[in-house]
Amino acid sequence: DVEPGKFYKGVVTRIEKYGAFINLNEQVRGLLRPRDMISLRLENLNVGDEIIVQAIDVRPEKREIDFKYIP
């Protein structure tokens, strides 16, 4: 289970104008929005990159997770 405030290693699987989709595993995916990136820009991410993200909002009923990147 993903818990708000905890850090997780994930893989960038898709990049859109509104953010990057990060997979923690095959069943768990969330969104990293540009506003939640500190010292990292969306255009510097590539599909396949491994990054450490912090879960900031977890909505299991909608199967949605918002992430934050903190270097």
Rank of each mutant, 00 (worst) to 15 (best):
D1M: 15
D1Q: 14
E3Q: 15
E3A: 11
P4W: 08
G5I: 03
G5M: 09
G5D: 06
K6R: 13
K6A: 09
Y8P: 00
K9F: 10
G10V: 05
G10H: 00
V11A: 05
V11T: 13
V12F: 01
V12W: 02
V12Q: 00
T13G: 07
R14Q: 12
R14E: 06
R14N: 06
I15D: 00
I15P: 00
E16F: 12
E16S: 11
K17A: 13
Y18L: 05
Y18A: 05
G19V: 05
G19N: 01
A20Y: 03
F21L: 09
F21G: 01
I22F: 03
I22A: 00
I22C: 01
N23G: 09
N23Q: 13
N23W: 10
N23H: 14
N23T: 12
N23M: 12
E26S: 15
Q27H: 15
Q27F: 15
Q27S: 14
Q27C: 11
V28N: 07
V28P: 02
V28T: 13
R29E: 09
G30Q: 01
G30P: 01
G30Y: 02
L31Y: 04
L31K: 03
L31S: 02
L31A: 02
L32N: 01
L32I: 04
L32Q: 01
L32W: 04
R33S: 04
R33A: 04
R33Q: 05
R35I: 09
R35A: 11
D36P: 01
D36H: 13
M37E: 02
S39I: 10
L40F: 06
R41G: 11
L42T: 04
L42I: 12
E43W: 11
E43K: 12
N44G: 09
L45G: 00
L45D: 00
L45I: 11
L45S: 01
N46K: 15
N46P: 01
N46W: 15
V47L: 13
G48M: 06
G48E: 03
D49S: 06
D49F: 06
E50R: 15
E50A: 14
I51V: 09
I51N: 00
I51A: 00
I51Q: 00
I52P: 02
I52E: 07
I52V: 14
Q54A: 07
A55W: 03
A55L: 06
I56C: 06
I56K: 12
I56Q: 07
D57T: 13
V58A: 06
R59S: 06
R59E: 04
R59H: 08
P60I: 11
P60Y: 10
E61H: 13
E61W: 07
K62N: 10
K62Q: 12
K62G: 07
R63P: 08
R63Q: 13
E64A: 07
E64Q: 14
I65H: 04
D66M: 09
D66F: 13
D66P: 02
F67M: 04
F67D: 01
K68I: 08
Y69L: 05
I70S: 11
I70W: 13
P71F: 06
P71C: 09
